[in-house]
Deep mutational scan, measured.
Amino acid sequence: LPHTAVCLVCGEAGKEDTVEEEEGKFNLMLMECSICNEIIHPGCLKIKESEGVVNDELPNCWECPKC
């Protein structure tokens, strides 16, 4: 993702460097949905019932829970 990318919900950049544990890092890193192209911190999504499908081949790419 470009350095200028920010979260659609909170308007902040990736914050994964501020935590140690892997789950915390994931919730604070910016992810781009391969379907709707929205860039968001997974932790900013209010959807709890399902998780997005992470694409292991492309960094910061997933199918968000909304899609």
Rank of each mutant, 00 (worst) to 15 (best):
L1I: 15
L1M: 13
P2N: 15
P2I: 15
P2Q: 14
P2T: 15
P2V: 15
H3E: 15
H3V: 15
H3F: 04
H3L: 12
H3C: 02
H3M: 15
H3T: 14
T4M: 00
T4A: 00
T4Q: 01
T4W: 00
T4F: 09
A5Q: 09
A5C: 13
A5N: 10
A5M: 14
V6Y: 15
V6G: 02
V6R: 05
V6E: 04
C7Y: 00
C7F: 01
L8M: 14
L8G: 02
L8K: 14
L8N: 05
V9F: 06
V9E: 10
V9G: 06
V9Y: 03
V9W: 01
C10F: 00
C10L: 00
G11S: 09
G11V: 00
G11P: 02
E12L: 12
E12C: 08
E12R: 11
E12D: 09
A13Q: 15
A13L: 10
G14F: 13
G14E: 04
K15G: 07
E16I: 03
E16G: 08
E16A: 04
E16M: 08
D17Y: 05
D17V: 09
D17L: 04
D17S: 09
V19R: 13
V19L: 12
V19E: 03
V19K: 06
V19N: 02
E20N: 13
E21M: 10
E21A: 13
E22D: 08
E22W: 05
E22L: 11
E23L: 04
E23A: 11
E23S: 14
E23T: 11
G24E: 12
G24F: 12
K25N: 09
K25D: 01
K25Y: 01
F26N: 13
F26K: 06
F26R: 11
N27A: 13
N27Q: 07
N27W: 07
N27K: 13
L28I: 05
M29V: 05
M29K: 11
L30C: 06
L30M: 04
M31L: 10
M31G: 03
M31R: 08
M31S: 03
M31Q: 02
E32L: 12
E32F: 07
E32K: 14
E32H: 13
C33P: 01
C33Q: 02
C33G: 02
S34I: 10
I35T: 14
I35S: 04
I35W: 02
I35K: 10
C36F: 00
C36Q: 01
C36N: 01
C36Y: 02
C36L: 02
C36A: 01
C36S: 00
C36K: 02
N37C: 15
N37G: 13
N37Q: 14
N37P: 01
N37T: 04
N37Y: 14
N37I: 01
I39S: 09
I39D: 02
I39F: 00
I39V: 12
I40V: 15
I40D: 01
H41P: 06
H41V: 00
H41I: 00
H41L: 00
H41A: 00
P42Q: 07
G43W: 03
G43T: 04
G43R: 07
L45V: 09
L45K: 04
L45E: 03
K46N: 14
K46H: 03
K46C: 13
I47N: 05
I47C: 08
I47A: 11
K48H: 09
K48V: 06
K48P: 08
E49I: 06
E49D: 07
E49L: 10
E49T: 12
S50I: 11
S50K: 11
E51P: 05
E51M: 07
E51H: 13
E51K: 11
E51Q: 06
G52L: 08
G52K: 08
G52R: 13
G52E: 11
G52M: 06
G52D: 09
V53E: 11
V54S: 05
V54E: 12
N55S: 13
N55Y: 04
D56L: 09
D56R: 14
E57V: 08
L58Q: 09
L58E: 12
L58H: 14
L58W: 08
L58T: 14
P59W: 05
P59G: 10
P59A: 09
N60V: 05
N60A: 07
C61N: 02
C61L: 11
C61A: 13
W62S: 03
W62K: 05
E63T: 13
E63P: 00
E63R: 11
E63K: 14
E63S: 06
C64S: 01
P65N: 00
P65T: 02
P65M: 02
P65A: 08
P65G: 06
K66T: 10
K66L: 01
C67Y: 00
